[in-house]
Amino acid sequence: MIEILQWTTLIACGAAALSRIPNLVRKKNRSLFYVLALMTLAILLSIQGPYLVIDGLLGSTNLANLLLRFIIFGAIYFLGIRIANGFGDERGLRLIQGHAGLAILAVISVALLVLFAFMDTEGSSAGMMAVYARDERNKVLTEYYGAAGRAYPAYVCLALLPAMLRAVRSTLPAPLRISALLLAIGGIAVILSLYFQAIPPALGYLTYVINYTAILCFVFGLALIWLAKVRAGRNTMDRTGRSAARS
């Protein structure tokens, strides 16, 4: 079940990234392509099979997991800036790009590196499950490491959430409001991921559901904005065509 969810998300995200290639060539909103490409890579690294292959190439010390965390940070940072800019959210932009945001990013990154260094990370395993199960010390370290990895995305989403909810209730065109709603749901899912430690092991699948829901919401939200733009672009062309015909 979870495998299906993972691969579906991978395909959706990969397709979204591919659909940006024409814009990439035209040099329009290139960072969105990079964000989606990074997200695709992140999903790939979160799936057991590809993870083992890539981590094998990196020396089987779970370095790929550390890489995954920083890929997510990069994607969420650039996506956050884009969204804040697009929705005119000055406050969110300051929280992400300002001194406070960068300081938080730096602290969390250092914490990740330090925790990773203190762990016995020998032996590839997706999500570092094997490391977690090794002994009490590694278990605690992995928990903190995971929490640190989820903290920064949650911070960015929390910064953007008010603007998203405002946009949902605004008088913007319906597709944009639905997009804002999807982005808000994705953001809430990411924020919920902060509480993963509170989820009992029996309900472990919930962590997957929440993670991939977040990604799917982001991908579909962005795709909807793009579709609305294409449609609106055609409408304006119609209108200018008609008024030109009239004059």
Binding site: G86, G88, P173, I225, W226
Partner: peptide, 18 residues
């Protein structure tokens, strides 16, 4: 006025995320 503001906002979203 509201329509114009919405229009500008939509344009901005598309410019950044479209």
């Amino acid at each position: 006025r509201r329509q114009e503001q919405d229009h500008q906002q939509a344009e901005k979203i598309w410019e950044n995320l479209g």
